[in-house]
Write a protein that binds this DNA or RNA. Structure first.
Length: 650
RNA sequence: GCCACAGUAGCUCAGUGGUAGAGCAACCGCCUUGUAAGCGGUCGGCCCUCGGUUCAAUCCCGAGCUGUGGCUCCA
C-alpha cells in the first residue's frame, strides 16, 4: 500500500515512508525565497499560475546568466565539461564536471568575469542546427553529446516508457565566444542584464549528480542568482540574511528551547524546560479545541506487534523508512511509524451504530521513522516526532461536513497564531493514470467534498492533478511565513482503503453492515516541526500566551530583591510564567541578558515601585511603558493570555 | 547514502610542525547601581577519534565520527 502521495514537485522532497498518509507533512522543506512581489513563480505540473515564470524577462535574464557563467567557468578552468544550466525558482545553476575542485577565489574571478562579459553588450543569437552539426560543435562535450542523442531519439525512462518526444529541431545559442545547446529563451543582448544584479557567491557550490542519478557522474553545481535591478538583488540577499537570523536551530539554543546531542542520537531532539513549556502549551491548547470539536483523545504505545503493520500493509514494503523489528520472546515488535492502525483497532474493538458516527479519535502520537542522515535538519526533519494525529470514522454522507469542520478547525488554529497566510493544495487523481484504486463515484464525491469545503471556507486553493494519494484525494495546508517562505503544515486525506483492509463496519439504519470511510488528518503535522516553524515565524518572539517565560522581574538594587520576589509570587499566583532575576549582578547586565531571551515583559522594580506597588514595564520591543500598578499589569497580561492575543499591550 | 566545507574552553572564535589564546558565560571578591556590558581575580582544553609521515603533529596525509550546505527544477 502506498498511502502518501508522491509529492516530488519542486521543493518538496519525496517521502520515504510511502506507507503513511502523513508522509508528506513531516519532511517538507521551505520553499526558496522567491520574487513574490512580482508574482512570478514557476508553474507546476497540473495547474496554471497567473503569470508563467518561463515567459518572464526575469527567467530570460537568469537563463542567460547561466550561459554567461558557463563561459566564465570554461575560461577559468579549461577542460571543464559542461552539462545543463537552467533557471530555478530563485536564480539559476549550472552543473559542471570540473578538472579540479573549485575554490572561493575561482568564484570571485568568475563573478567578476561575468560582469565584464555582460558589459560587452554581446547579442544572444540563436541558430538551428542538424544533429550532425550539433555533434561536431560539441564533440569535446560528452554530456552535450548524450543530450543530443536523447533529443534526437526522444527520452525513455528506466521502464522503456517514452517520456520525451524526439525533438524536431535543435537550437544553439551564442553569446560572445560561447555557444550552448539550448532551447532558450534568452535576452536579446547581455545589456539587458544588470551586472550589479547578479551574484554567484551567495550560495556555496555543491555536489549534484548527472541527471539526478546517484549512480552517475558526480558534478559540481554552481548556483547563482540574478534580478532585474540591484535593489531586487539586495532585497533578496537581505531576506536570506533575515532567514538565517531566524534559524530555529540557532534560536533554539539561544532561547534554551531544545538541543540535539549526538550521544542521544542525531535527529532525536531533547526538549529543555523552556522548549517543553512551549510544546506543552501548544498541545494543551489544541487538545482543548479538539475536545470542543467532538474529538476523543486516545493513547497508544510506542511499539506495536509486527502483525499489526502486516495487516495495515505497511510492512514489509516500506522497510526502508522503518526501524528493524525488535525481538521480544517469540514475537516481533516495531517502533510505531504511524498511529492509524492503533486507532483503527480502537474503533474495531466494539460494534458501532450509524448513530455514533462520526467517531473522531485523536492522539498526540509519537512515531519513529528512519531518515537518512543527510536529510536530518533541526526540528524540521527528525527521526522521532509527535503527530497531532486524528482519524475520523465517518459515513459516506458525512465526509463533506467533516472535511469542512477539519478545515475550520485548522483555520481557527492557524489564525490564532497569526498564521493567516495559508492556502489549500488539493491533490486529485490523474484520470489517465491507472494507479488509483476505488470507484469513480467515490473519487468524484470525495473530490467534490474537498472542493466544496474549500469553497465554503472561502479559502484560497489550487488543484493539482495527479497529486492525490492512490486511494483518495487529499488537501494539504500550506502556510506562508513573514519572509514569504512556504511551509506545508497539516494534511487531510480521505481513505477507503484501510477500512477495507481491517474490515471496518458500522450498522446502518436498515440494520445492514456498511463500511465507514476514514479521514486522516493532522493540523500541526509534527509538533516538533511545527515548533520549528513557529520559532522562525515569530523569530523567537512568541505571543505572550506561548512564551515559555512571560515576564522577568529585575530588581534595581539588591535590597529590592524582597519586593521583586513578592511581585513574582503575585504574578505566579495569577497564573503567569514568571521569574525573578535575583542574581548578584547589576541591573543593566540583567536587562542585557534577559532581552536576548525575548521575554515579553521585563519588570524593573526599585524604591518607587516598592513604595507604590507598581512595576516599571519594559517590553521585548525595547519600548519603556513606565510604571504600572501591579494589579493593572496583572489584569492586562491575563487578558492578553486568555485571548491568545498577539499583542504585548491590551 | 553521495559531494563540498567544517570540528580548538559551556558559547562565539583566534592561533601555531616544538602539547594553546581572546571575548562572553561560570565561580570568588569589591561595587549598590532607574532601563543594552562597573572593577579585579579564579576556574576551565586528550586542540573530535584512530592510524600514517616526522626527532617532534592540535597543525601535514589517510580513514572514521559529528555538524553545515547541497544532492527536487533536465538543452
Amino acid at each position: 500500500m502506498r498511502c502518501c502521495s508522491s509529492t516530488n514537485k519542486r521543493n518538496i522532497t519525496r517521502c520515504n515512508l510511502k506507507g503513511c498518509p502523513y508522509a508528506s507533512l513531516f519532511f517538507v522543506q521551505q520553499r526558496p525565497i522567491i520574487d513574490q512581489a512580482q508574482g512570478r513563480r514557476p508553474t507546476q505540473r497540473g495547474h496554471t499560475m497567473q503569470e508563467r515564470y518561463e515567459d518572464s524577462q526575469l527567467y530570460r535574464i537568469r537563463h542567460s546568466a547561466a550561459h554567461i557563467m558557463a563561459q566564465a567557468v570554461l575560461e577559468r578552468l579549461p577542460g571543464t565539461k559542461i552539462t545543463i544550466g537552467p533557471p530555478i525558482e530563485d536564480g539559476f545553476y549550472y552543473d559542471f564536471e570540473l578538472p579540479r575542485p573549485i575554490e572561493d577565489a575561482d568564484i570571485k574571478w568568475i563573478e567578476s568575469r561575468m560582469k565584464k562579459i555582460i558589459a560587452g553588450n554581446h547579442p544572444f543569437t540563436v541558430r538551428e542546427v542538424t544533429p550532425d552539426e550539433a555533434r561536431e560543435l560539441f564533440k569535446d562535450q560528452p554530456y552535450k553529446l548524450e543530450l543530443i542523442d536523447d533529443l534526437v531519439n526522444g527520452r525513455v525512462d528506466e521502464n522503456g516508457q517514452q517520456i520525451q518526444a524526439p525533438a524536431a529541431t535543435l537550437t544553439v545559442y551564442t553569446q560572445d565566444k560561447f555557444t550552448d545547446l539550448c532551447r532558450g529563451p534568452h535576452v536579446a543582448s547581455t545589456k539587458e542584464i544588470n551586472p550589479n544584479a547578479i551574484n554567484i557567491s551567495f550560495r556555496p557550490p555543491s555536489g549534484a549528480y548527472w541527471r539526478g542519478d546517484e549512480k552517475r557522474q558526480q558534478l559540481t553545481r554552481i548556483y547563482g542568482t540574478a534580478f532585474e535591478t540591484p535593489e531586487d538583488l539586495q532585497d533578496y540577499l537581505h531576506r536570506l540574511e533575515e532567514a538565517r537570523k531566524r534559524d530555529h536551530r540557532v534560536l533554539g539554543e539561544q532561547l534554551e528551547l531544545f538541543i540535539i546531542d549526538p550521544l542521544v542520537g542525531k535527529g532525536l531532539p531533547l526538549w529543555l524546560p523552556r522548549g517543553a513549556t512551549l510544546r506543552d502549551t501548544l498541545e494543551r491548547w489544541l487538545r482543548k479545541r479538539q475536545a470542543e470539536a467532538g474529538y476523543q483523545h486516545v493513547v497508544s504505545p510506542h511499539i506495536g506487534n509486527l502483525n499489526l503493520y502486516k495487516t495495515s500493509g505497511h510492512y514489509p514494503y516500506y522497510a526502508d523508512s522503518q526501524y528493524t523489528p525488535i525481538d521480544v520472546d517469540d514475537e516481533q515488535f516495531m517502533l510505531k511509524p504511524m498511529n492509524c492502525p492503533h486507532h483503527i483497532m480502537i474503533y474495531k474493538h466494539q460494534p458501532h451504530s450509524y448513530r455514533e458516527l462520526p467517531i473522531r479519535l485523536a492522539e498526540f502520537g509519537t512515531v519513529y521513522r528512519y531518515e537518512k542522515a543527510g536529510q536530518l535538519n533541526g526540528l524540521t526533519r527528525v527521526r522521532g516526532f509527535t503527530v497531532d494525529d486524528a482519524h475520523l470514522f465517518v459515513r459516506p454522507d458525512q465526509v463533506e461536513a467533516e472535511f469542512i469542520k477539519v478545515v475550520e478547525l485548522a483555520q481557527f488554529v492557524f489564525g490564532s497564531l497569526g498564521m493567516t497566510e495559508f492556502r489549500a493544495r488539493v491533490g486529485i487523481r490523474d484520470p489517465q493514470s491507472p494507479k488509483y484504486v476505488g470507484s469513480d463515484d467515490l473519487w468524484n464525491s470525495s473530490t467534490q467534498a474537498i472542493i466544496n469545503a474549500c469553497e465554503k471556507m472561502g479559502m484560497r486553493y489550487t488543484v493539482e492533478e495527479g497529486e492525490a494519494a492512490f486511494y483518495g484525494p487529499k488537501l494539504d495546508l500550506v502556510f506562508r511565513d513573514a519572509l514569504k517562505r512556504d511551509w506545508q503544515l497539516g494534511t487531510v486525506q480521505i481513505d477507503p482503503n484501510l477500512p477495507e483492509r481491517f474490515d471496518l463496519e458500522y450498522i446502518d439504519s436498515d440494520n445492514t453492515r456498511k463500511r465507514p470511510l476514514m479521514i486522516h488528518r493532522a493540523l500541526f503535522g509534527s509538533v516538533e516541526r511545527f515548533c520549528g516553524i513557529l520559532i522562525e515565524h515569530f523569530a523567537g518572539a512568541f505571543p505572550v500566551w506561548l512564551a515559555p517565560v512571560q515576564a522577568v522581574v529585575i530588581p534595581i538594587r539588591e535590597d529590592h530583591n524582597e519586593y521583586a520576589e513578592r511581585v513574582r509570587k503575585h504574578l505566579e499566583a495569577a497564573g503567569l510564567r514568571v521569574e525573578a532575576d535575583l542574581r548578584d549582578k547589576n541591573m543593566r547586565n540583567k536587562i542585557k541578558e534577559q532581552r536576548k531571551m525575548l521575554i515579553p515583559y521585563l519588570l524593573i522594580v526599585g524604591d518607587q515601585d516598592a513604595a507604590n506597588e507598581t512595576v516599571s514595564v519594559r517590553l521585548r520591543t525595547d519600548e519603556d511603558r513606565g510604571a504600572m500598578p501591579l494589579n493593572a499589569f496583572t489584569a492586562m497580561v491575563q487578558q492578553l493570555i486568555d485571548n491568545h492575543s498577539l499583542e504585548l499591550v491590551g
